[in-house]
Design a protein around this nucleic acid. Structure first.
Lengths: 244, 244
DNA sequence: GACATTTAAATGTCTGACAATGAAAATTGA
DNA sequence: TCAATTTTCATTGTCAGACATTTAAATGTC
């Protein structure tokens, strides 16, 4: 393992890349211990500080974990679904807030993904999921609920729906859609939306799941999507009218 | 901005968190310049080395970029879709390779997502996408193609399909599904698959898109999913038979 | 055998230094 | 006057060496 002093990239970035490659190609496997920082510094012919910066880059991606003390060191980390969820949510949130993504595009993406899991959720939902969804609907019905709490409950409801599909890979993929986009949409539409309408649609979803009817689940989601798109258009229209 | 010396987390992790929060809550916006490393060191009451480790963590997530020289520094980076694709692919690849995800679960997730975009792709595909898909099918038909090249072409075909939906958020979401899972599946099934069958299914997809018939597109994808699941089962069965 | 102490290896942090960079400012030349 | 060149200097990148802290293993003690 050597690095190129003429490359435009920093040493620490090159070293991080080299180790990342080793992990992704299987040369390093889960729970393997990397050489100590001092050894890596010697191998790559750089200072320990530079090695440390490289390791921190990898730690930021949850590729390694470090442990202090004798027999400690840096170990290849098993990327858990939970950690991956977090990264997915962070990335999705920033991607939406930093790029000119229209409400329409975001909403379309979010519901296209969620509708994809409807048949699986209808087939596999168990009592736990239904119970969560029902209790969130109940919570949403309370008149004294703040907008933040309503949004939070909304997210919890959709997460239960996603988890009902019983496929962790899909849950991971949809984490960004539900946990990043849903709050964003709530923030935009909260002033215009009718909680009653949303709750009614949630109830339709829950009932369809209970009866295991995939088409009704899909249709209810479709209707929720349409309603949200309408809200978005209204808010945008109101905003531009106010400016004129 | 202060840090907690009694926290279990490293200073550099705490500082990275604090800055990450500032970015995600909008206190720092795109192209804002962070204080210099020396100033941050003073603010947080740590050494410059520790600040640098924190900044490298953020750089690894593409949250900041750094520029050397006077008037350089660390700037909040606009997370581009392209960068997000890369992260998505890395994370998805590792998630699948490090966790006991069955072929069936991965395949189900991958096709559920891809089928979600079928109606949009059918409605919006333009000549570019069709041309790419046709040329990839053509390439796949060549007898002298290596397995690696066939897989690469397969990925390119599906990427064109995803891009045909004309929604960058969906393209980002599906990047992991196509670019991480497809190669994985190819690796497992390449010995058992019939290129002819796959090409025929690809042709059906391309034709359905050309005619803008969403249901046929969806059905072809469904058939491709079923075929792939069959292959997976066969390979698993053959593998356990060999062991017995 | 159970508990306390020591040891050593590793990460975490600090200090101070110098190199490399690159945009702005200052200088030069026509 | 203006364009080309040089200088300046704030900033990041890298280094060497030091010390603090942690922690599991080894050792010692009862």
């Amino acid at each position: 393992m050597k690095i190129d002093p003429n490359s435009s990239a920093d040493f620490s970035a090159q070293i991080a890349s080299a180790i990342r490659d080793a992990i992704m190609t299987g040369k390093l496997i889960v729970d393997d211990r990397l050489p100590s920082e001092a050894e890596l510094a010697e191998q790559f012919e750089v200072s320990r500080a530079t090695v440390r910066e490289a390791l921190k880059r990898l730690a930021a991606q949850s590729l390694i974990r470090t442990q202090r003390g004798a027999f400690g060191g840096a170990f290849v980390n098993r990327l858990s679904f939970e950690e991956a969820y977090g990264q997915q949510i962070t990335t999705s949130t920033l991607l939406l807030s930093m790029n000119a993504v229209t409400f329409e595009v975001a909403c379309e993406a979010r519901y296209a993904m969620e509708r994809a899991i409807a048949p699986l959720a209808a087939a596999r939902r168990c009592e736990d999921h239904l119970a969560t969804m029902r209790s969130e609907i109940e919570r949403q019905s309370r008149a004294d609920l703040t907008d933040e709490a309503f949004c939070e409950s909304d997210v919890a409801f959709h997460r239960a729906l996603v988890d009902a599909a019983g496929n962790p890979v899909l849950s991971y993929q949809l984490a960004g859609a539900v946990e990043a986009m849903q709050p964003l949409m709530n923030m935009i539409t909260f002033s215009a939306r009718s909680r009653k309408t949303i709750i009614r649609l949630h109830m339709r979803i829950a009932e369809a799941l209970e009866l295991r009817t995939a088409t009704d689940t899909d249709q209810a989601l479709q209707d929720l999507c349409d309603y949200t798109q309408d809200l978005g258009r209204n808010v945008v229209a109101a905003r531009s009218a106010r400016q004129a």
